[in-house]
Design a protein around this nucleic acid. Sequence first.
DNA 1: CATTCGTGAAGACGAAT
DNA 2: ATTCGATTTCACGAATG
Length: 327
Amino acid sequence: MNSTKTESITEDGEVDRRREGEVDRRREDVDDCPECDGRLVDEIGDGELVCEDCGLVVDGNRIDYGPEWRAFDQEARERKTRVGAPTTKMMHDQGLSTRIDWRNQDAYGSQLSARKRRQMNRLRIWDERFRTRDASKRNLKHALGEIDRMSSALGIPEPSRETASVIYRRALEEDLLAGRSIEGMATAALYAATRQTGVPRSVDEVANVSRVERLEVTRTYRYLVRELDLRLEPPDPVEYVGRYASELEVSDETERQARSLLETAKRTGVHSGKHPVGLAASALYASARLTNERIPQSEVSAVADVSEVTIRNRYQELLEAKRDAES
DNA sequence: CATTCGTGAAGACGAAT
DNA sequence: ATTCGATTTCACGAATG
């Protein structure tokens, strides 16, 4: 256990330095019972601590609520030490189901026998397990429903939806949901999936059909990428061309020309750092102009949802890159 | 008249401290 | 948490056709 802690500390400085503090604090908690100063033991090895003297149950997941509970879980996963049903308490406030009280007293307030106390402890464990399982199920159902709804609204193909749900499930498994909205995570997962499957939608498009703000989508998305180690290339502008081309009803020749424009731009590197959607839109505009198929900037701008100014700036660059390539 | 072009100020964003 | 640099957007007026 301890050796792996040091390993992950050296790996990722900032995150794990804070975690070090967490672990230390936890150890203090372990030492003695807050009520009677008796010794706390982990009776059944699931992290739930019980005082030997008074029977007080100390929430074994307490450290999971700290800012770095994630690191804890990740490490646990790497070590494969986590077995059995998940005992995390996502949505711990949710639902009206019966909860088993933590006090070892009966309804009249008298103390329970040692035997009863053990029984109650076991019940608490199962109570917790069922509750979290139900919560996860509801959570997942809700999220998948959202993913489907948004996908339909955006005409996102089936494979991308599948990918989105896979990403969401992973997020759920790794407890990335705590403190975040289901809708936000579902939206972020969908956005990531469209990129991963090569049929990207812009953040704005996705946010438009989502129930959460754009800011939350991007924030959650970044978080998702970091925690799940998603390797996502910046979207290729070419991947937007087809969709916008058909929306603008340009000729095949214009669309082809637009793609070629983007290819030469990529070769010279003028594309990097620029908004891919803007590039795609500008390529279409420039291309239409080359084939004498005049489309107003205003129209391209409306379809792709980028400003006319950006189209102006980009399309000049694209033509320039083409000229350079030809000489 | 519609469309295009250029510009400075302002906002948004990611990266780095 | 703030700061910084690059990019995009907004608002406007001028030029072009």
